[in-house]
């Protein structure tokens, strides 16, 4: 098992004709993802590397029932595309664009909520269930994807796309595989923060442990700690929080993602670490300690194949 995406998931790709989207769609299909249609306004009727293209989600879904959509559209167009997908009834929407205006982000999240649709992102690198399927840009081409990810018992959630992949690579190198890795998105507001995805891992029999890669800003880690404290997540959690350098920076200084803004003492890495530790997570100070902490969490029953 896995969460969000597997080899049975039927995927629609919005913006499929762009060069980056086309490359990633090729990588997704090579990895085993079932891409059933593309959506590009004004390009309906075309064929993109064997994938039929439609003008809208409504017309694509009329011909091809689908479970999920991945949006490779530019930031300025992301909200309208996501809202269209939500209204058309796609059950899960992944938004990759970085730099989506915040009012658009709030609108797309509100629409998804109303439609009862799961929205991952924006500013997500993608989702991968190793050995099964992937959506988005995670991993890039097949050789790199196979180097970084392997199938196994660890669920990985990260606010940084690149560092989430790096986390999976550290684990894979030591023979510890992943059930699903989700790049939840680097913005302060995302459709599915840690606390909304952890219950899926709780239900997933293959996932035995979850690794969180956190950053300064927002309340994603605080909410994850609260969920653990309330008993909503009972599997072991290993966490790493980047951005200690921000603790000493003057107010208003931000390196990294838009979310990495420390305001009024809330959202500071130190506070996130303390709350996660209090909730029972193993919080490591150096990323390289993640594999050992995961092995400890998995216990004596786990042997790397």
């Amino acid at each position: 098992m896995s969460i969000l995406v597997d080899e049975t998931t039927r995927v629609v790709v919005a913006g499929i004709t762009g060069w980056q989207a086309r490359a990633h769609t090729g990588f997704m299909r090579a990895y085993g993802t079932r891409v059933v249609a593309g959506v590009v306004p004004g390009r309906g009727g075309e064929d993109c590397d064997g994938v039929p293209v439609y003008d809208s989600f409504a017309s694509a879904l009329g011909e091809h029932p689908a479970d999920a959509a991945v949006l490779f559209v530019p930031a300025a167009a992301a909200a309208e595309s996501a809202i269209e997908a939500a209204v058309a009834g796609v059950g899960m929407i992944l938004v990759c664009a970085e730099g989506v205006p915040q009012h658009d982000v709030a609108r797309m999240i509100a629409h998804a909520r109303r439609a009862g649709v799961r929205l991952v992102g924006p500013n997500s690198q993608g989702i991968i269930s190793p050995g099964r399927a992937k959506m988005g840009g995670t991993g890039g081409d097949l050789p790199v994807t196979n180097l970084l990810f392997r199938r196994g018992p660890v669920g990985v959630l990260s606010r940084s796309g690149g560092m989430g992949s790096e986390t999976c690579w550290l684990l894979s190198r030591e023979g510890v595989g992943q059930s699903t890795y989700v790049s939840v998105g680097g913005d302060a507001m995302v459709g599915a923060p840690f606390s909304e995805l952890m219950p899926l891992f709780e239900e997933d029999p293959e996932t035995e442990c979850v690794v969180l890669f956190g950053e300064p800003g927002s309340c994603a880690e605080e909410d994850a700690a609260r969920l653990m404290g309330e008993g909503g997540f009972t599997k072991p959690v290993v966490a790493f929080i980047a951005g200690m350098v921000n603790e000493s920076a003057p107010q208003g200084v931000s390196f990294g993602h838009a979310a990495a803004i420390i305001e009024r003492g809330e959202g500071s890495p130190a506070r996130k670490k303390a709350l996660l530790r209090e909730a029972g997570a193993a919080v490591v100070e150096d990323m390289r300690e993640i594999p050992d902490a995961v092995r400890d969490a998995l216990g004596a029953g786990f042997f790397a194949p």
Partner: peptide, 16 residues
């Protein structure tokens, strides 16, 4: 360093 999270982590690492 490209990638916001990676850049942040590298700054942490340099400081350490």
């Amino acid at each position: 360093w490209s990638g916001g999270g990676g850049g942040l982590y590298l700054l942490d690492t340099m400081a350490r």
